[in-house]
Write a protein that binds this DNA or RNA. Structure first.
Lengths: 165, 165
DNA sequence: TTATAGGCGTTGGCACTGACAACATTCATG
DNA sequence: CATGAATGTTGTCAGTGCCAACGCCTATAA
């Protein structure tokens, strides 16, 4: 036991990091604490991540991949609900993901899901994304009721305009 | 000159803090650096703010007040546009404000601005707020084009549903 | 089979931070 | 004026990110 080499420190750091972010918030993620939880010295992680920022970036990328998976195959109303559900299940991760992350893929997904919905499909996709994303943020922050029924009603309160104004 | 007492350290800290947040991001705000900029020792700020967190809270409250002022008297489309404009002018402040802040007053404002817009006015208000808030966030993060014309188009792409689904 | 190069982990150290304690200066109020 | 309360100051400590130097272990190839 207690082998000198960890085996898969990178993965262990991502796991520990994810838990730390969810428990303490982004500011609470320290490389040293994550290293401690991975059972490794305070400098070992730097072999896998050049700096704290890049650990965060990796966590964000990870989270985006999970969200992508959670949205797979869904569209329209279902897409929005799954998006919000994911956000509420992983609130701090979610906030972090879009604070740093590359959201191009997500935009793409919304563009496809809502192609031809409004006059300008790029704008329509952005609007749909904005609605669910904003709702997710406000619900996470507690500015809006998190009850699932209410959230559904909020999403249902908006329609695409038929023609651009 | 160089009086022992600063005169209005609290305000100076808020000013320095606001600049720091906008320049470096929330993580870049350190009590010590703000103290330095205010020309005061590293512990003086603790007479006015019990800890870093409470300095951040004060900054958030300040920002909310400014946003309230920027929205005063506006409603409907104008309200949304002013909201997004403020967010893009003070991106990091804005992100922080709603990560911590008490958003009840803002909800109230949207509720009044959109009273009777949809079947359920609470849901309608939340939807309107979500749309503009989400758009602001996505634009700030660069996930969506920041061009003002485009943003207007996005806001115009959504209508309230006449009856709840 | 063995030596050796490089990947991976370790210890040590530095500058910076948030926060506590003790002390100093100034301001208000009698 | 005197004295207590505000407000600032210096000193200190543990925790952090990151750099440098060194040690272990494993895969390769002679």
């Amino acid at each position: 036991m207690a082998t000198y080499h960890h085996g898969d420190l990178r993965a262990a750091m991502l796991a520990a990091g994810a838990r730390l972010v969810e428990e303490e918030g982004v500011a609470g993620l320290s490389v040293r604490e994550a290293a401690r939880r991975a059972g490794v010295s305070h400098n070992a992680p730097y072999r896998h991540f050049p700096d704290r920022e890049s650990l965060l970036a990796a966590l964000a990328a990870d989270g985006l991949a999970q969200l992508e998976k959670a949205l797979e195959g869904r569209s329209g109303r279902e897409l929005g609900e799954a998006y919000v559900r994911f956000a509420l299940a992983n609130p701090r991760r979610f906030q972090m993901m879009f604070a740093m992350g590359r959201g191009a893929a997500m935009y793409e997904r919304f563009a496809q899901a809502f192609a031809g919905s409004g006059a300008d499909s790029k704008a329509a996709a952005a609007a749909a994304w904005s609605l669910v994303h904003g709702l997710a943020q406000l619900a996470i922050a507690g500015h809006v009721d998190q009850d699932e029924g209410f959230l559904r009603k909020v999403l249902g309160a908006m329609r695409f305009a038929q023609r651009s104004a």
